[in-house]
Design a protein around this nucleic acid. Structure first.
Lengths: 213, 213
DNA sequence: CAGAGTTTGTGAAAGCGTTCACAAACAAAC
DNA sequence: GTTTGTTTGTGAACGCTTTCACAAACTCTG
């Protein structure tokens, strides 16, 4: 199998989302052109992305929506339900916990941890917030596979070290900090401040040299 | 001025964050090597990134921390305070509202909007949640420059159209959907589900072909 | 069933971003 | 002041991703 880039995987997720909408609307066939225009890319890009994983289309017709949904879900590993733990029961943690699109794709939050004694013991939608101290044991007991880190930046590396030691190999990080993990552990960072600074740059730039962007 | 890529801007933000920490610790000089190892990139990359905007270093010595902080803040447009509106007073909106790193870099949330009548009128840290209907007027009155869209996906495009019509040219989008905007308007999307699916892909892949990643 | 019209899959070309490698510039030591 | 050691700035090479372009494969119509 050829090498697959990060951006490609991101686009596959986008295609999948669109395809599920199309399936909902009982559309049964879609062209690369249609998919491209709805996802903000080009038809050639769509075909290249898909061709990395097999040949799913029919020439002269396009792609079968239900089939492509199935294929993409398989490719992205979304056929199983993932067991997820949330570390940090602050506002970001709460937002994530309530995020619909999470559960819908099979990411089930099955544990919530925090250090704050006033938060420990609270019920979140039927799930009890647990003390940070017992984290390793709970991760093991519940077979957690993915952790979401939503703690302050200065605490993040420590948490991550513990998660890695406990066997977690996938981490979604919200702390605005560089994390070091051993090979074999995957970290994705969501950095809102970074995105805002990207906006700031683009807007300042337009004021300085109009029409440049 | 040469063309500057998205990834470069992202790295500049990271460098700035590190430099502010160094400044806090009264470090006054830093090498590209040091900056690189702390930000997870290479020394050559750091120098290339910075060289796009001028020559800030001293050969044989490195970069002056305070000077580079100033320069980066200028480059990223962070010398001014940006007036930001939050559209959508749900959980994600609440998380963002309380996000420290936002205000610290000069992004001031000066209006919050929602359609839900039970939310309108609530006080958020001294700021009253306003009805969606009066959005355009408030944006104008308060000179809002950047909007954060934290509404359900199906409502996002409509909100964005109104924002653009009202003169907003920078949008941070949390809705998991493709947004169409005219040229000159910058949209950055933060898509948590997408990142999770990236994790799912990487983890599934490792199970199928260990050591591949 | 033949012909006209679509749409895919994919090598090849082009475009970008990263890495390399080294001369130039400076600091520090003696 | 000279030498040794360090670090920057940058053209060139490299590698990866995207775009192009078109033959092959299929549909649909009459």
């Amino acid at each position: 199998m050829k090498k697959v880039s990060e951006p490609t995987i991101g686009r596959l997720s986008v295609y999948l989302r669109l395809l599920m909408e199309l399936a909902e609307a009982d559309v049964d066939t879609v062209s690369s052109e249609e998919l491209a225009s709805r996802s903000g890319t080009t038809a050639a890009q769509v075909r290249k992305d898909l061709s990395l994983f097999g040949t799913f289309g029919k020439r002269g017709l396009g792609y079968s929506v239900p089939e492509l949904v199935t294929r993409l879900r398989a490719i992205l590993g979304l056929e199983k339900a993932w067991r997820v733990a949330l570390v940090g029961a602050g506002r970001i943690g709460a937002a994530l916990f309530g995020y619909e699109n999470f559960r819908r794709q099979g990411f089930n939050i099955e544990a919530v941890f925090d250090t704050d004694p006033t938060k420990v013991g609270q019920r979140w939608n039927g799930l009890v917030v647990e003390a940070d101290a017992g984290m390793e044991r709970v991760l093991e007991e519940r077979g957690i596979e993915i952790a979401v880190v939503a703690v302050p930046a200065r605490a993040a590396q420590g948490v991550v070290d513990r998660l890695v030691a406990a066997g977690i190999r996938g981490i979604l990080n919200f702390a605005p900090t560089q994390l070091d993990v051993p090979a074999g552990v995957v970290v994705k960072t969501v950095d809102m401040a970074l995105e805002m600074e990207g906006l700031s740059y683009a807007l300042s730039r337009e004021e300085r040299e109009p029409g440049a962007a």
